[in-house]
Write a protein that binds this DNA or RNA. Structure first.
Lengths: 158, 158
DNA sequence: GCCCAAACATTTGTGTCACTAACGAAGGTA
DNA sequence: TACCTTCGTTAGTGACACAAATGTTTGGGC
């Protein structure tokens, strides 16, 4: 009974969902480690990126666009606000809402985090040629577009 | 400020690690839902598959081959043993170890779960042509092979 | 033979993440 | 008015990855 050289049997390795999950773990770790070095998590980056691209938004809107649950958004915004990256003010037009606004400090922070995330992407995709990287992105986009809403509230879509 | 039709900004969508994570969530959900309908989780399937392919093994070996932590393996094997899918006996040759063996019931269960997992794979990859499915698998395999060991014990490989 | 380092199975605990349930406050509509 | 929904918030659940510590057992060096 000599120890086999291959740790994971071929049968399991060939299962796409396991393959994808494995790559996702690696990718998340690489991104997470870099962001953690700056005291950030991926959600901070996602929120800042959405604010920079689409302008001020309510928390519910940020939830939909980033994929973070409204419940979890609270803590993320608390942290971003504590760091001075965003302002959270009551919406005068609709007092149920908070208007979340990117600050100058937030914009600078996004710039920094953006670099880190981009570095991580490069490391993740390093073993692929540029053409392969593009193809992978294309295929993954096809999958996400097809499997759009897992089961979100149907009344959200316009 | 009309509500934009696109929930997620293009900038975030284009990030490979986010793309991968999104697909992984969808894939995990599709697999998980099917397995849950039979009261199983993916780890049950993984352990059964390894046992079927490589024969009886110690818990530590199963840990290495499935990727489950030794700590978590205990509960998984408890559940599989309670369901009569595996036998867990002390190894007479090395009494530190348990020998985990697939039972006839376990083999039948694996057959069933295998079908469910295969169905899920088909649904996940549905939007891709067979050639694209193959290419995606190839690219993901390249990535996993390159990013091999996060930090496993170096003395395992023989 | 004895001693020590390692492997093993196990328990317990931690942190992250996706997600649900429930609440009060506010708005829209009939 | 009453009703239903959205919003922000708190609290809690369950799966998962992982660390730390414990007790048992094994193998190697002496």
């Amino acid at each position: 009974m000599s120890a086999p050289a291959e740790p994971t049997p071929a049968r399991l390795r060939a299962i796409p969902s396991r393959l994808i999950a494995g790559v996702a773990v690696v990718a998340d770790r690489l991104v997470g480690e870099r962001l953690a070095a700056e005291g950030a998590r991926k959600w901070h980056f996602a929120v800042l990126a959405v604010l920079a691209e689409s302008g001020p938004a309510s928390q519910a809107e940020l939830s939909r666009r980033t994929g973070i649950y409204r419940s979890d958004m609270v803590a993320v915004l608390n942290e971003l606000a504590d760091a001075g990256c965003v302002r959270r003010e009551a919406d005068t037009a609709d007092r149920r809402r908070n208007v979340v606004t990117l600050t100058a400090a937030g914009r600078r922070r996004l710039e920094r985090l953006d670099t880190l995330v981009a570095d991580a992407q490069r490391e993740i995709l390093a073993p692929l040629t540029p053409a392969e990287q593009h193809e992978l992105t294309r295929l993954l986009t096809l999958l996400t577009d097809h499997h759009r809403p897992p089961h979100p509230h149907p009344r959200d879509a316009g």
